[in-house]
Design a protein around this nucleic acid. Structure first.
Lengths: 333, 333
DNA sequence: CTGTTAGCGCTTTCAT
DNA sequence: ATGAAAGCGCTAACAG
C-alpha cells in the first residue's frame, strides 16, 4: 500500500541508494537524476519510514521536550516555541510530561532515550535542575538544552533570562510608585527561578534602603490557590502591604481575587504585580503589572541550539520587559 | 552500549524469540523461563527499540493527538487526558498541532501516518470536522476517535457533550434570574460547537417566549479580543443587554474587561456567563458563571476508545455542569 | 556521480 | 513450550 524507497527507485530507474541520497539531500547526485527521483517520490506520495531510518541510521528525526509545569499558559508557549523550530527542521517533537518528584525519573528518561533514540532533548524548568536527570544525560552524551535552568548555567547549554534582575526591576518599579511595604509571594520551591526572584526582590529593597520584613514574604506554589492564600495572610497583617508582588501570574490572579473579596480597590489601595506575562495577565481585571518573560522565544532558541549542534556548551540570554497595564497609580497610604 | 534483545537472550540463556514473547506478554512461556528473562531485562536495564518493533511488527506503540486550538487551557486538558490514558497503556503520544485552514492538511496527516505508523489517532475540535482529514483516515482504515465533533456524531467513534443542551441550560439560568435581553457572543466559525451553542441559546429563548433579536448576537473567535469587541458593540446598543453569554471563557473575560472600562458593575448591572470552565474562569474577577465542559475526561475517554478497539463505531456522551460563582444576583433592570 | 552489500533490533512464520 | 530463519525499510561503508 504505502510506497517504499524501492518503489521509488524502480519508478525512477535508479538504485535505492540514490533515492536515499536525494532524501537526505546529500551532494553528488546529478541534477537530472535528482529531478527524476523527486518526481517519482511525489507521484507515489512517498513518505519515508521513520522507524527504518532510525533503525538503520544514526538519527531518529525526533527530539523530546520534557517538562513538569502546571501552568497551562507557560507550557503552551514552550511547546509552541520548540515545535515551531522542529517544524523548520523536519523533526518531530515528543512532548513528555513527567513528575520531577518521581524517584525513578532518571530511569524513565533513560528509557525514553533507549526506546525512541531521540536526537536531542529540551528540558523545561524544573526538570532543568533535576540532578539525576542531568547526570543520566551527560552519561549518555546526548545533546540537550535547558530552558531557564536555576543552577549551573555555565555547565550545559541553556537559554534563560535574568530572573533576579527582572524581579529587581519590578520591585524598583513599585518602590518608585511610592510603596514602602511590598508583599512578596515566593514561587514553587521546585523551581530555582523562585529563589532568584526572591533574591531580586531583596536586592531592590536593599538598594532602596527599605528593611526586609519576613512577615511580608509568603510561600506559594505557582498556582491560583496558593496566591490567594498568601494574599489572605498578607492582608490580615496589622500593617498590611500596599503592594503585592507575586512570583507568577497565576498567583497574582489569586491575590486579585482576595483583594476583591475584602473590598480593597486595586490599584487605588493595593498594587498587584505578577511575573511571566501570560495570557492570564492580559485577561484578568483589574490589569496586572507584569514581567514579560519571553517564554516562546526561549523555547524556540533552545531548539535552535540543539539543531545548530555547536561543538561545545552555549548560552543565550534573552531580555525581559516590565509591562504596566494601567495600575500605575500611587498608593493611597 | 544499550542492551538489545540478543543481549537479554544470551544473559538468560534463551533464544531471542522467547525474550520477544516475554516482552509482548504472550502465552506459552514457562514460568521459570519468564522469570529468568525478566531478571535479565532488569539487570541489563533493557528498553526495547521502538523503531525495531515498529519496523518488524504491526504496531508502533504510538498514537497521535492532532489539534488546532488556540486556547491553552483547553489544549492542556486535552493533552493531559490523552496522555494519562496512554501512560497506562505503555504507549507514546505524539502531539501534533496543525492548521485546519491549510489546504495540504490531509496530506500532512497522511504523511504523519506513513512516517510514524501510529496505531491510532485522536482528533480534537476543529480538526474533528475537517472533511479531507476524515476521508484520508477512513481511506487508510486507521482507528481514530473524535473529541467533541460538530458533525456526524454517528459516523465515527467519538466522545462529546451536548453543547446545545448546555447552552440551553445556561440561557435558561439567565432567564430564571430575570433577564429578558440576553446578549450572545458566538464562537469561532471553524468550530461546529459554536453553531450548537447558538442553537441552544435560541431554543431556550424560544421556550421562554422571548423573541430572538439579531442585534443581541455577535460573532467571536474564541479569544479575549473578540469577546471584548463583541461586548463593546452590545453595550453600545440603545437598549443594551442585562446579561451577556459568551461561547467560551476567553471571550467572557473580554466582556468583563469592557464592562469594567465602562464602569458597569458586574453582576449588579450586568450578568456575564462563559463556557468551558477553564482555569481562566476561576481566575477572573468578578466570578464568571460557566458551563463546565469535562474536557480532560473527554480526552481520556477518547484514548480509551482507541485502545479498547471495539470492532465498530462507538460513542460516549459525558455530562456538563452549570457552575455558578457568586454572580447570581438579579439584574437591576 | 552511482550501485552493491551488510546489517540496525525486532516480529513474523514456520518448525520442532 | 521454545527456536531458526527471513525479512521490515532504510542507512553505512564500501566499491566502482
Amino acid at each position: 500500500m504505502r510506497a517504499t524507497i524501492s518503489d521509488v527507485a524502480r519508478a525512477a530507474g535508479v538504485s535505492i541508494k540514490t533515492v536515499s541520497r536525494v532524501l537526505n539531500k546529500e551532494r553528488y547526485v546529478g541534477a537530472a537524476t535528482r529531478e527524476r527521483v523527486e518526481a517519482a517520490m511525489t507521484a507515489l506520495n512517498f513518505s519515508p519510514s521513520l522507524a527504518a531510518r532510525t533503525l538503520a541510521g544514526s538519527r531518529s528525526f525526533q527530539i523530546a521536550l520534557i517538562y513538569d509545569n502546571h501552568s497551562p499558559f507557560y507550557i503552551h508557549q514552550i511547546q509552541e516555541g520548540v515545535w515551531a523550530r522542529c517544524r523548520q527542521e523536519g523533526v518531530r517533537m515528543l512532548a513528555q510530561p513527567v513528575d520531577v518528584a518521581s524517584p525513578t525519573l532518571a530511569r524513565e528518561v533513560g528509557g525514553l532515550i533507549d526506546e525512541t533514540r531521540v536526537d536531542g532533548i529540551v528540558l523545561s524548568s524544573p526538570v532543568t535542575d533535576a540532578a539525576p536527570v542531568l547526570a543520566e544525560l551527560e552519561r549518555r552524551g546526548i545533546p540537550f538544552v535547558r530552558i531557564s535552568p536555576g543552577t549551573n548555567h555555565a555547565l550545559t547549554s541553556s537559554v534563560f533570562m535574568d530572573d533576579a534582575q527582572a524581579a529587581d526591576d519590578m520591585t524598583t518599579h513599585l518602590v518608585n510608585l511610592g510603596h514602602r511595604r511590598i508583599g512578596f509571594v515566593i514561587g514553587h520551591p521546585n523551581h530555582m527561578a523562585s529563589d532568584q526572584r526572591l533574591f531580586g526582590y531583596r536586592r531592590a529593597l536593599d538598594r532602596a534602603g527599605i528593611a526586609y520584613e519576613p512577615e511580608l514574604v509568603r510561600p506559594g506554589l505557582f498556582d491560583f490557590a496558593s496566591g490567594a492564600a498568601a494574599a489572605e495572610a498578607l492582608l490580615a497583617l496589622p500593617a498590611p502591604p500596599t503592594a503585592i508582588f507575586a512570583s507568577n501570574d497565576d498567583m497574582a490572579a489569586g491575590v486579585l481575587a482576595v483583594a476583591h473579596d475584602r473590598g480593597i480597590p486595586v490599584p487605588a489601595r493595593l498594587s498587584v504585580a505578577g511575573f511571566d506575562d501570560t495570557e492570564l495577565a492580559r485577561a484578568v481585571w483589574p490589569p496586572l503589572t507584569t514581567i514579560r518573560q519571553p517564554t516562546r522565544d526561549l523555547a524556540y532558541t533552545a531548539a535552535s541550539l540543539l539543531f545548530e549542534k555547536s561543538d561545545g556548551v552555549e548560552h543565550r540570554r534573552l531580555q525581559h520587559d516590565l509591562m504596566t497595564r494601567g495600575s500605575t497609580a500611587r498608593p493611597a497610604g
